[in-house]
């Protein structure tokens, strides 16, 4: 039970692969191959489950939340094939035992791991991820997709990694952006207008490819990389989705307070004029305003006093006298 308590730096998310009421031949293989990539943080529910995450009339959401609690998992991949939506995969992400956001994709084309007679990656090794398209920075649907896939395969924060252990690449590329998507203003909050359903057909397809890497010597420290297709290869199209509740997302995005040592080593909000010297001491620079040399008090001599200056000097003397007792009084109080 202690292992399930919240941690500051979280472990990799565990994903549960759930089969819906009907999964076709394609989806079975897709889920098996995706699970091979996700292992060892994957749990398979091989029996059929009446799960319809987007149908709010059913108890699907509460079932998902129950499973998440039971298995200490925070990701779901639900496979479901229907006549209306063939070969649908639903990614569900949880936060604190509640559903955070959901995303449904349809599998249009698929080539499994078996169809490539090439070396495969070792289970448990972290993949490298590659996203290519400007939509991953601009379109909310694709931002969600990127975030979801990163969380799915690579969400664990590690402080060091063994470089020879990097074996495979998951590459996510969009089809060319259609002109309609480039020009039309993007509706940032499609969830707020459920009456007008989104036109998903205009959204470009997504190609997920997996490769293994081969490192060739280049004569420099950095090797040259060559890729070999590994499989599974998926062509996906976006379907329904549910964006995260802003309030819940805000909670989920909270970061732990940055420790003092980390701030000194340059993490977090950049502190100006602070640096750590070789001895590990924190040194600061203080800005002192430019000195006005005209007001510099030089040695007073009677001979130097003019008529006007004299008057000013007396005034300033009086001021000084005024100030000093006030300071004393304050100290006493």
């Amino acid at each position: 039970m202690d292992a399930r308590l919240p941690k500051e730096v979280e472990d990799a998310r565990t994903a549960i692969f759930v089969k819906g009421t009907h999964t076709g031949e394609v989806l079975n293989v897709v889920m098996r191959d995706l699970m091979a990539l996700k292992r060892p943080n994957a749990i398979s529910f091989s029996k059929k489950n009446p799960i319809h995450p987007f149908d709010s009339n059913t108890t699907s959401i509460s079932s998902l939340e129950f499973w998440a609690g039971k298995n200490d998992a925070s990701l779901f991949l639900v496979g479901q094939t229907t006549k209306k939506r063939p070969n649908g995969l639903t990614f569900v992400r949880m936060y604190d035992g509640q559903v955070l956001d959901m995303m449904e994709v349809g599998v249009d084309n698929f080539a499994g791991m078996d169809s490539f007679k090439t070396p495969k990656s070792t289970p448990g090794h972290k993949p490298l991820m590659h996203f290519a398209s400007e939509l991953f920075d601009t379109h909310p649907r694709y931002i969600q997709l990127k975030s979801m896939l990163m969380d799915f395969f690579n969400g664990e924060v590690v402080d060091s990694i063994c470089l020879p252990g990097l074996e495979h690449v998951i590459s996510v590329t969009c089809a060319p952006t259609p002109a309609s998507l480039n020009n039309a203003p993007v509706n940032m909050y499609p969830n707020q207008h459920p009456s007008a359903p989104e036109d998903v057909s205009s959204l470009p397809k997504i190609h997920i490819r997996t490769y293994t890497t081969r490192l060739l010597s280049s004569g420099t420290r950095i090797p040259r990389v060559e890729l070999t297709p590994m499989g599974p290869n998926l062509d996906l199209s976006l379907r329904r989705h549910k964006a995260a509740d802003p309030e819940l997302l805000k909670q989920a995005m909270k970061r732990p307070k940055v420790k003092k040592v980390d701030i000194e080593s340059g993490l977090g909000k950049k502190k100006k004029n602070l640096e750590v010297d070789e001895m590990g001491d924190l040194r600061g620079r203080v800005h002192v305003g430019k000195q006005d040399l005209n007001k510099l008090q030089t040695r007073k001599m009677k001979g130097l006093k003019g008529g006007d200056l004299d008057a000013e000097d007396e005034e300033s003397d009086e001021e000084q006298e005024d100030e000093t007792p006030r300071k004393k009084r304050r100290k006493q109080a």
């Binding site: 590659h130 290519a132 991953f136 920075d137 990163m150 690579n154 969009c174």
Partner: peptide, 29 residues
């Protein structure tokens, strides 16, 4: 930190239509 790279250049339609797999692999490489 997440071993991730994002290529924000628009996809070249010509080479995409010509040979999809090769295009994707060269992009990824």
């Amino acid at each position: 930190g997440f071993l991730t790279v994002t290529d924000l250049n628009p996809i070249d339609e010509e080479s995409y239509n010509e040979n999809l797999e090769e295009h994707l692999q060269s992009l990824a490489r």
